[in-house]
Nucleic acid binder design. Sequence first.
DNA 1: ACTGGTTGTAACTGAATCTGTTACATCGGA
DNA 2: TCCGATGTAACAGATTCAGTTACAACCAGT
Lengths: 143, 143
Amino acid sequence: MSANSRLTVAVHVLTWMALARGRGRELVTSDQIATSVNTNPVVIRRTLGQLRAAGLVAVQHGTGAGWRLARAPEELTLLQVHDAVERDQPLFGLHANTPNLDCPVGRGIRPALTQVYDQVADSMKRELARTSIADVLRATLAA
Amino acid sequence: MSANSRLTVAVHVLTWMALARGRGRELVTSDQIATSVNTNPVVIRRTLGQLRAAGLVAVQHGTGAGWRLARAPEELTLLQVHDAVERDQPLFGLHANTPNLDCPVGRGIRPALTQVYDQVADSMKRELARTSIADVLRATLAA
DNA sequence: ACTGGTTGTAACTGAATCTGTTACATCGGA
DNA sequence: TCCGATGTAACAGATTCAGTTACAACCAGT
């Protein structure tokens, strides 16, 4: 399947918020962010809701409502963002149907693959942890 | 998204072929493999077709037709399998719609993310390269 | 207490993907 | 020629994804 864009949208959101914050506008709305991402504000609010559940952003209600970063951009890693928006999504799927348990391979391959896939996911996560939103903003403005 | 099971099925196929080969049965049919994977033979043939295009298995036509491994199980890595069945599938998708190019973030974030995503994919591939079909077979029979 | 702009979330749509299935042409050794 | 297997197109149902509409909830300012 072609992978989804959740991580991309979430990083875009946070990077945009980091830029706004650097310009003195700490509180921003889903509408403003949606203009930059070029999508519907509800999509942005869904993403922000996941980021809030993970403690990466904070929301303010009522008049003058909006969102703000809960941490400095240097302290926000792509791993935190990934964990926030891809909760429990395996990197590789196992069998759609249980394999034949009468076969030695069908019986043992799922735990064997789970172990390998976990190692691969750990490696991926270590790499994601090496980049912060501040890094992304820097690279984005340099382009 | 829940991830697809292509890599899992392909590894299962090759692992089963490696076991059969170790038992002296070098040539096997998609029907036999499908029984272990618990799916339709056409699904297996589709997978085998991709593995053949990558040079990992060889096919034999006519009477007594079937498939055989093109290399020893020790020489078949999960990276090769991944590249065979997930050709050009990005690890993370970019924006579904082009972001707002009038915004500095919308303009610069795609190349910035591409660079990061490529690094993460490289890390993932390095880890996949560390495991062979022989390793998987060993772990499968040990379970 | 009312207003008004924003959030929070459910419900639905269309497109795409994934797995499984049927059908059938093709291959080539016996 | 026969026959068991491959190669592949076509289709179906389930699921996912992004987008959209709709509307209740929230709360600072007046």
